[in-house]
Amino acid sequence: MTPNPALDAGEDPRVAAFEARIAAGESIEPKDWMPERYRKQLIRMMSQHAHSEVVGMLPEGNWITRAPSLRRKMSLIAKVQDEGGHGLYIYCGTETLGVDRQELVEQLLNGTAKYSSIFNYPTLSWADMGVIGWLVDGAAIVNQTILAKTSYGPYARAMIRICKEENFHKRQGYEIVATLAKGTPAQKAMVQDAVNRWWWPSLMMFGPSDTDSPNSGELLRWKVKRKTNDELRQRFVNLTIPQVQAVGLTVPDPDLRYDAATENWLFGPIDWAEFNEVIRGNGPCNKERLAARREAHEAGQWVREAATAYAAKHERRSTEAA
């Protein structure tokens, strides 16, 4: 589907007025008129983002019972709870576009919705908890800091709220990484192995390269996105490499080098075939994640029913008393 902005603009004078508002830096609110494509793109992007937060609870939830200390366990529980909260902030923002929460949840459960490819990789060691907080949440911060200036008001406000909390996630992750990196040889090897496994999937989190990103042009024009995927990816690498060096680790990229002219850390080619496979549902954990999500939803059915019955009972009593 290639959008045709010229045709849209020709059809409806409101499009031009809408684009003028965007150009002037105004934010768009739920009751404002917006082109149907803008609404659809936002629903797609925001619901994928919300699903990612919810599915993102699973790889880390895997380690709560095996955290090495009470301090680490408390932090991890709080982080996983935050991810659930982030999903709720964004679902609530998505609903302002006129879509039902239940519909979005069903799309996730029946496998038609997409979510971030990163969460389809397994968490094999405790070091993964550190590396996820540091790299995965670090990448999310780079992405979300820019999204906090997105043109759709409810999305921007959800991002501001989320960014404040992500900094805790990143710091607790980096603390785990730094602790293991200066630990025993076995601990250092464990954390290096985790970096080796998570580095490339973290770079893939920013999405396809600009030359191959079907939605980017339109999203940039409407200021839903403020920077391209490649710009954000480069920013993440530039921020992260000094942090890698500070704890004496390396990234699995023989082509990595600093380019003094552009002040960028240049990195090697990304394996987009792997990215596409994971997106298509063939990553190492896609099926496991969805199965866990469905199980959680079904196992929570009785709680939802009980809350509904309780509310109905109280409603009935208050009507009878009146």
Partner: peptide, 11 residues
């Protein structure tokens, strides 16, 4: 701040 879904006011 945002919104929530709930069965009743208490929840």
């Amino acid at each position: 701040a945002g919104s929530v879904h709930a069965a009743d006011a208490e929840q």
